[in-house]
Design a protein around this nucleic acid. Structure first.
Lengths: 159, 159
DNA sequence: CGACAAAAGACAGCCAGGGTGTCTATTATT
DNA sequence: AATAATAGACACCCTGGCTGTCTTTTGTCG
């Protein structure tokens, strides 16, 4: 049965949301109710070397001001620390805190568990085939993870 | 090569965005620069029978107030008409205009063209296999298409 | 070395598309 | 007839994006 292009797009979105919603719910169950997917993603980038608002903005393909906003939230919640950069007085250097790393580790484990479940349901080879195809079709572009609103929202919806 | 669960989620999102961004850009090229994916989706639901703000909200799994907001935008732009419902004085009956149907038809054609391109790149059977698997994994859940911000944004990003 | 350009972060205000709360009018149910 | 449920309108809020502006600091160039 051949589907419409719009159905395909919605299936991809549905798959994404199934994973992300499940991961967010599990993280909330583990005590991290205030961690949105975009926060997790930003922390990953910071942990990977984006140690300033401007660099984080470049990594996430968003403006430095938006990045700074996210950083402020993460700092407020104790996931990220921000101090002056000894090498450059203009900059503030970012670091993921121990708490932040704990979120990252747990998030990683949860996502991998969810993926395993998918592999068990459709077969590991099939899942890898999907991943390879998607990589070929869309994986070359850096995916923009900007997720205002819905993906950053509290779990427990819809209204 | 086995990937992480988070990578899988991002691949799905990347695929979705590749399709949606391309479709939005093409629609804009055809003169519909003010049509966001969420607008297209809302119009589909209205055309399919969601003839009131409350029903549209239920279809999209959003509040009636949010639905009303989207409707107001669509009405303003001439894609949807809203008049009193002769059967129920509480209601406003919604209808997609001719202009709105034109957007829907073009959007449909564009998405199908994009899907065909994918089928040509990875093979029609492979693409259908992906669709079937995704349907099995996540297709049973109504996907919430609420897309504040990024997906509703103008084409031409990132900044 | 000085002038100028580029970069950093902070501050301010704006936006889209979600949300909640409240209200009045209408319809449905008991 | 009384009450419950529903509709839309209005108001305000939120998140995570955006743009513009500013001052300070660093880098580049003549």
């Amino acid at each position: 049965m051949s589907r419409s292009g719009a159905d395909l797009a919605l299936l991809l979105l549905g798959g994404f949301r199934a994973l992300v919603d499940a991961a967010s719910a599990e993280l909330a169950d583990r005590g991290y109710e205030d961690v949105r997917p975009v926060h997790d993603f930003a922390m990953r980038a910071i942990a990977a070397g984006a140690d300033s608002a401007s660099e984080l903005g470049r990594r996430l393909s968003i403006t430095k001001q938006s990045a700074a906003k996210t950083i402020a939230v993460l700092q407020e919640r104790g996931y990220v620390a921000r101090d002056t950069d000894p090498r450059d007085a203009r900059r503030k250097r970012l670091q993921v805190t121990e708490l932040g790393f704990d979120v990252l580790r747990q998030g990683e484990a949860i996502f991998d568990e969810l993926r395993d479940q998918w592999a068990q349901r459709i077969g590991a080879a099939e899942l890898e085939s999907i991943e390879d195809h998607l990589t070929a079709l869309a994986g070359a572009q850096p995916v923009r993870f900007d997720t205002p609103g819905w993906i950053a929202r509290d779990i427990g919806e819809p209204a």
